[in-house]
């Protein structure tokens, strides 16, 4: 197991390095930061002087390694917008996004696990049809529309929950529901089909032939098997929730990194964008690594190989 995880860890590091390279190159091609820093009427000489001062006239790979070295020390340069280190600007927003993502993930699990299992166990029943339809709708409805509709219903009409804000727990409910429903729909559909597949396996017949109650057959023998193949998707979804919060955060004015990303792109605050993209990519890689570790925990077969 240690060997397998060691290999996966190495792959993860390579993946993160790859991401930094791509981000660096794309942002370098996308625009010249120096022209943005100087007033529009700056002379050619002034531009060249600042370029030389900031090291932008060096060969690209030299710049990249300098960037990488600085990044390793946590130095991603200044935010042109906030006049603060870009990294701390982003890190300040992380707790808000993480809270939202975790709440959304919890919402999606709370909905999808019972829904997926019931749909699979009562396959082709009316309950199953309702769950399947809702899941399909949940996957089709865009977050910005769902967010606004929920806001309209619960905040404007019923006046139960705040439209935006970050102060109270009640403010978390609507954004978490908006963000979580999409994942809930995805999980429900996957869990249903996995459960149906697993329920057709012979070891389920064996479990039943032992006289086990249907509850034990479903939860102990089927669910755990169905879950192990769902882990990968769950990992990707959590990572997606961290990044996919962009729209939801904007709709609910949630002060997380998603909204910061949109603002920074609009303001050409490249250093901040750089930090956010690398952070999101890294969280993808890290979560995938965690999923691999969980696989080992769940599936004895990988453990021993």
């Amino acid at each position: 197991m240690a060997k397998y995880l060691g290999k996966r860890l190495l792959q993860s590091i390579i993946a993160i390095l790859g991401v930094t390279l791509v981000v660096f190159l794309v942002l370098n091609v996308a625009g010249d930061p120096v022209t943005l820093m100087l007033p529009a009427n700056a002379s050619f000489e002034e531009i060249e002087a600042l370029k030389a001062k900031l090291g932008y006239d060096d060969p690209v790979f030299v710049q990249y390694f300098r960037f990488l070295g600085n990044a390793l020390r946590g130095d991603f340069g200044l935010s042109y917008n906030y006049y603060q280190p870009a990294l701390s600007v982003v890190l300040e927003r992380v707790p808000a996004t993480a809270t939202l993502a975790l709440a959304a993930f919890a919402v999606s699990l709370l909905i999808s696990i019972p829904a997926g299992i019931v749909a699979a166990v009562r396959r082709n029943s009316k309950t199953d049809a309702v769950i399947r339809t809702l899941a399909l709708l949940g996957q089709c409805v865009p977050a910005f529309w769902l967010g606004i509709m929920l806001m309209l219903l619960f905040s404007v009409k019923l006046k139960l929950l705040p439209t935006s804000g970050f102060e109270s727990w009640s403010a978390l409910i609507l954004p978490a529901a908006t963000l979580g429903l999409f994942s809930a729909a995805t999980f429900t559909r996957m869990l249903r089909s996995n459960m149906i597949e697993v329920m057709g396996k012979e070891y389920i017949d064996t479990a039943r032939s032992k006289g086990l109650s249907e509850r034990v057959v479903v939860w102990k023998h089927a669910f755990k098997n169905a879950l192990s193949s769902l882990l990968t998707v769950m990992g990707l979804q959590i990572a997606g929730l961290l990044g996919g919060a962009v729209i939801t955060e904007t709709v609910f004015a949630w002060p997380g990194i998603g909204r910061l990303l949109v603002q920074s792109i609009n303001n050409s605050d490249f250093n901040v964008v750089e930090v956010i993209v690398i952070l999101m990519a890294t969280s993808f890689v890290v979560i995938n690594f965690i999923v691999d570790v969980l696989y080992c925990v769940v599936n004895p077969r990988i453990q021993l190989q």
């Binding site: 012979e202 070891y203 017949d205 064996t206 032939s209 032992k210 006289g211 098997n225 599936n299 004895p300």
Partner: peptide, 19 residues
């Protein structure tokens, strides 16, 4: 089931839960 009347199946490779 499994108490008074038991059953064994055709495919021993898949009749036991892998987990």
């Amino acid at each position: 089931r499994g108490n008074r009347i038991s059953m064994i199946f055709q495919e021993p490779m898949v009749s036991l839960n892998p987990l």
